[in-house]
Simulated assay, not measured.
Amino acid sequence: MKKDKTVLLAGATGYLGGHMAKELETRQIPTKIVVRNTEKAAQLISETATIVKAKLTQPETLKGLFEGVDTVISTVGITRQKDGLTYWDVDYQANVNLLNEAMRAGVRKFIYVSVLNGNLHRNLKICEAKEAFVDDLVASGLDYTIIRPNGFFSDMKDFLDMAKKGRVYLFGSGEQKFNPIHGRDLAIACVDAIASPKTEINIGGPDILTHNEVAELALLACGKPINVIHFPHWLRKSIIWALRTFTSSKTYGPIEFFLTLMAEDAIAPRYGSNRLGTFFQIEVDVLKKKI
């Protein structure tokens, strides 16, 4: 990629964004990494990557940053509320601010990471904001690719956290299937999308697993006997109702999302080479070294 084909990466301090920054560096693609906290992103500086400071929720801080940029890649979004910001502040408006500045600067393409089947779950607070931005991006006139990944390996740590205590809790039969993906594999696909004509890419990891199988992998990695407890779906629905009724979206948003997806299959085209069982084992080994 030539020097005038610079990528602007937003969301690099998150799980996926960090892998994305490394993949761009590996390919020697000139990159501007937009962050709020430059100290937190210091390790991302390289021969091809520079750090620029901006607050995505404050559009005036973005002015001038897109000069010479060919492609914007955004992984911006929040799964757990913080700093008093809402999904509409970050997943929607922060990305709209990026899009508006990209359009003013004549950027060629915008790549955005949403979620698998997000367009079918607009009733969920996380998806509502993400898909509203997708609508704006599609209507923008820019070339675009919407990346729709299945669950991240990092999200699977919830299974591992339960397994460390000797048991994993699931809803229903636990036979719902999905294929989560490692951030490294997903980053490769996202960077490939710079030159791809596809406007939407559904993507998951190489292994299609039931929730029971993921629970067993987590327990085995922790050296625990197989101990999986199944709760009925009516309890899951009751928890969602109670959270929606008695708490704010800041509290129930991520739980609502997780509990809803726990009740259905979520299978995407298989991609990548990193396996969940290996990821669990590495995580456990890292934890042991810290103790």
Results as ranks from 00 to 15, higher is better:
Thr278Gln: 14
Glu216Thr: 15
Tyr271Gln: 04
Asp136Cys: 14
Lys177Leu: 15
Ser154Met: 10
Val134Gln: 03
Leu170His: 00
Glu175Phe: 12
Cys127Ser: 14
Gly77Asp: 07
Thr210Met: 08
Asp143Gly: 06
Arg184Cys: 12
Gly174Met: 12
Asn100Glu: 14
Gly14Phe: 06
Tyr15Ile: 10
Phe178Ser: 14
Phe153Ile: 09
Trp88Phe: 11
Glu67Val: 13
Phe246Asp: 09
Lys2Val: 12
Gly17Met: 02
Gln81Asn: 04
Asn274His: 14
Glu128Tyr: 08
Gly77Ser: 06
Asn227Leu: 09
Val113Tyr: 02
Gln93Phe: 09
Ala129Val: 05
Arg108Tyr: 04
Ala215Thr: 06
Gly106Pro: 04
Val52Phe: 07
Asn123Cys: 13
Asp4Glu: 12
Met262Val: 13
Pro180Leu: 02
Tyr169Val: 13
Ile111Trp: 05
Ser154Pro: 10
Arg104Ser: 13
Thr75Ile: 08
Ala105Ser: 13
Lys125Cys: 10
Leu261Thr: 13
Asp136Trp: 05
Leu259Arg: 01
Leu24Gln: 00
Ile239Gly: 05
Asn123Glu: 15
Lys40Cys: 03
Gln28Leu: 12
Asn119Asp: 15
Val7Trp: 00
Ile73Cys: 03
Lys198Met: 07
Arg108Met: 05
Val228Gln: 01
Leu56Cys: 01
Ser273Ile: 15
Val134Cys: 08
Leu217Pro: 01
Asp136Ile: 10
Phe257Ser: 11
Ser46Val: 05
Pro197Arg: 02
Gln81Glu: 08
Gly11Arg: 01
Pro232Tyr: 00
Glu39Lys: 11
Ala221Cys: 06
Thr145Glu: 07
Leu142Pro: 01
Thr260Val: 05
Leu16Arg: 04
Thr210Asp: 07
Gly205Cys: 00
Pro180Cys: 04
